[in-house]
Design a protein around this nucleic acid. Structure first.
Length: 157
DNA sequence: GCCAACGTTGGC
DNA sequence: GCCAACGTTGGC
């Protein structure tokens, strides 16, 4: 069994917040609608059941990592792509030949102390995070060190 | 295969 | 609300 890895997903809280994930049955949801190839590749190829997932609120006040989750199902085709009524249809993707993939994630805990983007940028151990460097990637990797620092900060008073 | 035009993300 | 940065598309 491969070592546990760590990831970060972004969502605009006005669209889908961490609290909404927590309110799902079992705190679990499909991470659908991602239409970016780098993020797709991560979900399809790299994310495994049990991996840790930081949950980031973008376009928010403040922008912050607000909680963490766990991968509860590894990559599989995103069926919303071939549903014309879905939020992000892409009819080039079909059940026979899917283009877009997703994972399922399950909420673990809301942080007592959310970690703002500003904090990340000014923290020596966090300033090299993908989050601080590439503002446009909605599914990204997190190092074990970054994960540990963020969990400690987030769960403290 | 290059690159200009366009659309989107997301910080400020 | 603005706009920089980036990803994607499509003409050549």
């Amino acid at each position: 069994m491969p070592a546990r890895r760590y990831w970060l997903v972004k969502s605009e809280p006005s669209v889908y917040s961490f609290q909404e994930l927590q309110a799902e049955e079992g705190g679990e949801a499909e991470w659908d609608g991602v239409r970016n190839y780098a993020a797709r590749n991560t979900m399809r190829d790299d994310m495994q059941v049990g991996d840790g997932v930081l949950f980031y609120h973008s376009n928010s006040k403040p922008n912050a990592i607000v909680g963490y989750a766990v991968v509860s199902r590894s990559g599989y085709p995103d069926h919303t792509a071939w549903d014309p009524k879905s939020e992000h249809p892409d009819l080039k993707s079909t059940p026979e030949d899917p283009i877009w993939y997703m994972v399922d994630i399950k909420a673990e805990a809301l942080f007592r102390s959310p970690i703002s983007l500003t904090q990340v940028k000014f923290d020596n151990e966090l300033k090299d995070m993908v989050l601080a460097k590439n503002s446009r990637l909605s599914v990204q990797s997190v190092t074990p060190k970054e994960w540990k620092v963020i969990l400690t900060m987030g769960m403290s008073e």
